[in-house]
């Protein structure tokens, strides 16, 4: 049985939504000093890229875009795990997680 989809929005709509979400992520990453919020902004950016990948995969009728999204999700999970572990380790040593105060490696 062939699957039926309700897609009627053109590809450019999906891409424009992806662009807007990516820009929101960039603004959040640049203007917040809480590393947790910065991580969430990175997640928004990754998701906007995922959306573009899946939209292209649908409109070009190729499955490869969805495979790439699968890998992006894997890498995002790994990145979040390691990143949050680093934040916890920093908080343990200096009881603050403001990114401006973490400058021990500053030359």
């Amino acid at each position: 049985m062939p699957a039926t989809y309700i897609t009627t929005a053109p590809l450019s709509y999906y891409l424009l939504l992806s662009v807007v979400l990516f820009t929101i992520g960039v603004i959040g990453f640049c203007t917040r000093k809480n590393p947790l919020i910065m991580f969430m902004s990175v997640e928004i950016m990754l998701n906007s890229a995922n959306l573009a990948f899946v939209a292209f995969s649908r409109y070009l009728n190729q499955i490869d875009g969805q495979v790439i999204v699968f890998f992006i999700m894997t890498i995002a999970a790994a990145e979040v795990v390691v990143g949050l572990a680093i934040i916890v380790a920093i908080f343990r040593t200096r009881a603050s997680i403001d990114v401006d105060e973490v400058s021990a490696l500053h030359g």
Partner: peptide
């Protein structure tokens, strides 16, 4: 939106892994 694009598996993974596992991890750390 993944569902409307016919990516059912990725929609399920998105909810399970992202909205489930990763966000729970975030909330734990917060």
């Amino acid at each position: 939106l993944f569902l409307t694009l016919g990516a059912e598996f990725l929609a399920a993974v998105q909810v399970l892994v992202y909205a489930g596992a990763i966000m729970v991890l975030f909330l734990f750390v917060i």
